[in-house]
Design a protein around this nucleic acid. Structure first.
Lengths: 174, 174
DNA sequence: TGCTGCATGTAACTAGTTACATGATTGT
DNA sequence: ACAATCATGTAACTAGTTACATGCAGCA
């Protein structure tokens, strides 16, 4: 899903600034993909030029002024169309799997260490997910909760997968 | 893992042309990531300039001439170093999950259709994996086989995950 | 006659990233 | 005094993609 569609998806329900979008994204969508200011602001600019959104300058006291973005009818149409394009076939990109592919060139100890370090990083990810769980259950819609639960399960499955790999690495025949 | 490291990884065991690399990649690594000629050839050029590889022009009859690439000592060092850099934390990018996140804006029928279409594409992926299985078991090293098996399992787990989502979508409360 | 395989390469494009620049306010 | 939060934006860079250009050999 491209950045424009994601932004429009957020604007479907609330008017937001670029800063708000970043925050919302980080909280709810952050384990799927990242979104930096360096991509948000240029995207908003382009979207305004294409009349997918309008912006309203809001003067604030005690905080910097801001630009509140509102989705237009054209923007809603764009979002709906983009939501209905066929899904691409995903590649199962995974940094550890890419390493594993060339494990023959590492020493047995290094292999185990690397697999264990990856397992640790998965546990860390899981912890962070659990921390954000109450906020999501409270503020997200049922599909977003479903999405979150799938993310949890995804991580859990991957951990089991890596545990199996670790076991195989202990086998002196490998 | 960047493209240079992957290419060097292949060259660790065999001298190859850009064309060979593409083929090998597609067969064994293709479900993790893609590699097009448009990135292979510029990468090889850069690697030769940086003395990570040397190339040898091979004149052929009945087939186009080719450039056989050989890894240098510097290339081996580069590969070993790169294999030992800390693994980045992966994002769980998944086109269907990104859609699911905004399912509130689709009609119930559309939601189910999309989930089922994604399930079909996963089954298609699995079929292709099973087709390449005998070739991999025969030619790949034990770690690459482990990698392949993890890929199979990954797909299987994802299918179960999506099946759960589909079930939740049938619930009239969602 | 036209498709597939072998083989290399460039040009234009897509889609992001990080680092930098600016600057007020609030909490420690 | 220093960091964090709010807030917007640009510039240089990274890392790839697709489409195009070339051209011979072998097969149906």
């Amino acid at each position: 899903m491209d950045i424009q569609t994601v932004i429009l998806g957020f604007l479907m329900t609330h008017n937001m600034t670029g800063y708000d979008i970043r925050q919302k994204f980080d909280m709810s969508f952050g384990f799927f993909s990242g979104l930096s200011f360096g991509s948000i602001y240029p995207a908003l600019k382009k979207m305004e030029q294409n009349s997918l959104i309008t912006t309203q300058f809001v003067v604030q006291e005690g905080a910097p002024n801001k630009k509140l973005c509102t989705i237009t009818d054209k923007g809603r149409e764009f979002f709906q169309e983009s939501m209905r394009t066929p899904l691409p076939v995903d590649k199962y990109k995974n940094s550890f799997m890419a390493r594993l592919f060339f494990f023959a060139h590492l020493a047995p100890d290094e292999r185990r260490e690397m697999a264990m370090a990856y397992m640790d990083s998965l546990e860390h990810t899981q912890e962070k997910l659990r921390e954000s769980e109450p906020v999501i259950r409270k503020h997200a819609d049922p599909f977003q909760v479903l999405c979150f639960e799938s993310g949890l399960r995804f991580t859990e499955d991957l951990k089991k997968n890596i545990a199996d790999v670790l076991e195989a690495l202990e086998d002196p025949g490998v």
